[in-house]
Simulated scan of single mutants.
Amino acid sequence: MDTVSADESRFEDVPNFDYDPEYVDTGDAEMAYVDVGAGEETFLCLHGEPTWGFLYRKMIPTLTDRGRVVVPDLPGFGRSEKFTDRGDYTYDRIYDAVETFVRELDLEDVTLVCQDWGGLLGLPVAANNPERFARLVPMNTGLPDGTGGMPEVWHEFRETVETAPDLDIGQVVAGGCATDLDDGVVDAYRAPFPDEDHLAGARTLPGMVPLDPDDEGAAPIADAREKFSDWEKPVFVLFADADPITRPARDDLASVFPTADDQPETWIEGAAHFLQEDAGETVAEEIVAFVDRT
């Protein structure tokens, strides 16, 4: 498999994310990550499509007041290695990378904070490694096993990402926010993608969402749903009120976890798909309050 990495110089002007990356070799690709803070709590923050760890910059200061914060870039995104061939992106390969990352860092007593594809990958990792996870905070995500559908807006998004001749990731992220992003932030989301070779993952992941039980990824996600039916640890399902893509999945996701009923039904107001960008400080405060009460 051929891989590429964005030159570090592309990240020099990224605003409010002055963290030196560390790297873990997961086998097929090196994953970059930020590891800051210390304390009894460990927060693992997983981004989704088509962002990178920069998405969590507004949340890191509040979370580091409570403990260690680990923010990786998924393979194909951010400062991690990217496969240049779209066919090299498979659910199993990216899942294995995330699971290997957790094991290589020997993360324990983890509060998983995950959004979008961070949930499709991170939640099954937690289901299969329950001894490493203390709490779950799934945000604007789901566990699609191919038995349900996706809203029309998602199909439009998928077609655009797969076929746009000049895919502008900065504009894709801006379009998924309820707030206006300044030029420096939009450029930061563009930074990992200097050319088409770097875009293979961003173009491929939407098409990997299972729409049929026979689709790749459907079986491991269905297995995770079954394992979570006996989950006894705290779960806080935290969604934005203005996300047309994942809002319909909120109740289904909450129904997977018996302990989700123990937490208040909380919606982040005035936020869309990238709620970390729209209301990161508020989201972090809600997560800390969840930790405190559990």
Rank of each mutant, 00 (worst) to 15 (best):
T204W: 07
D197R: 13
V98P: 00
R190I: 11
V235R: 06
D25R: 04
P194N: 03
V235G: 07
F274M: 15
M31R: 01
M208I: 11
E8V: 09
L46R: 04
S229V: 05
L205Q: 09
A240R: 00
D116H: 12
D145F: 11
A254R: 15
T64Y: 00
G176S: 13
V185W: 11
G280F: 08
F43Q: 01
L63K: 04
G76R: 00
D292I: 02
F290Y: 12
L121H: 11
A174Y: 11
E30I: 02
T141L: 04
G184K: 01
F290V: 10
I287S: 15
V283Q: 08
Q263C: 09
E41R: 02
L105H: 04
V185Y: 13
T160K: 06
L205F: 15
E99M: 06
F157R: 15
K233L: 08
A271F: 07
V237F: 09
Y23C: 03
A219N: 09
I287C: 13
D195E: 13
P124N: 02
E281F: 06
L167A: 11
K82S: 15
G53I: 03
E30A: 04
E162R: 09
N128R: 04
S80V: 08
D88T: 04
E162S: 06
Y89R: 01
G270F: 15
C114F: 02
R247I: 09
V186M: 13
G217L: 08
L107S: 03
P21Y: 06
Y95M: 09
I94E: 05
D261R: 07
D25A: 06
Q263F: 11
A38T: 14
P220Q: 10
M1Q: 13
D168C: 05
E12P: 00
D85S: 02
P21A: 07
Y95L: 12
F239A: 01
G39C: 01
R57H: 15
M59C: 14
G148D: 14
V291F: 06
A254D: 02
Y33L: 02
L120V: 12
D195K: 05
V283G: 09
T90Y: 10
Y19P: 01
I268E: 10
D292S: 13
V288M: 07
R10L: 14
T100C: 07
K227P: 00
A32H: 13
P61A: 03
E81F: 12
R247W: 12
G39S: 03
V4A: 02
F11K: 05
D262Q: 11
G142Y: 12
